[in-house]
Amino acid sequence: MSHHIVAVEDLKFNYPDHTPALKGLSFTIYHGESVAIVGANGAGKSTLLLHLNGFLAPTNGQVRIGDSLLTCDTLQEVRRTVGMVFQDPDDQLFMTTVFDDVAFGPLNLDMTPEEVKKRVEDALETVGVTDLAERPPHRLSTGQKRRVAIASVLSMAPDILVMDEPTAGLDPRARRRLIELLATFKHTKIIATHDLDMVMDLCERTIVMHAGEIKADGRTTDIFADNDLLKSSRLEKPLRMQGCPACGG
């Protein structure tokens, strides 16, 4: 396997009505990196993520995953390499029990029933929801749904995890536990989020997007220290880097 794992070159994308959404993005993500993609609403984060899995075809430029250029021929292979966790777990969990949902991917990869079972059990154990296997998704809490959604991707053994707002809608404790869980993963991670405190915990590198362009790409600590950059990208410093109003610290 080559050293880089995701390479995006001069990626441009226009909506069907010709409004440009992505205006020439280029970046390379290396094996084992954990990269945050931050930016205001409408900056193009989700549009970018949809390109990494071939759901949108670039108007210009290209996307490379591992050794393969993303084309129609490599689509299936790329989708196996890139595990995509969607923002709304209700969209991701479309089967009627947790087990069936986590088994969906492995079954499509034509594994034997025993292998599938093993994969599902391992994935559920990794995210800590083994006891929920027979539950229907609509009887889970948001935090549990999010974990199952991650398990449903892990069961396909992807190299790269792409996540859209993994902490949205979680209570503080569920959020904390999810962050701890993600920190244990060895995968290459790409996380689009507004939760900058989570970025501080999980990602050494941050890409800042604004209006379809990359405004900055560098070490997370450097980026969050740059007040002008954050302000012009309609972002704010993570809370823990802000002065404490109560104690004046």
Partner: peptide
């Protein structure tokens, strides 16, 4: 929502047939 579900299916190697082990 149907479109998003379809994407979620595709990203897990869906090829048009839903398989269920039961």
């Amino acid at each position: 929502r149907a479109q998003r579900i379809h994407m979620a299916m595709l990203s897990r190697a869906f090829t048009g047939e839903i398989k269920i082990v039961r």
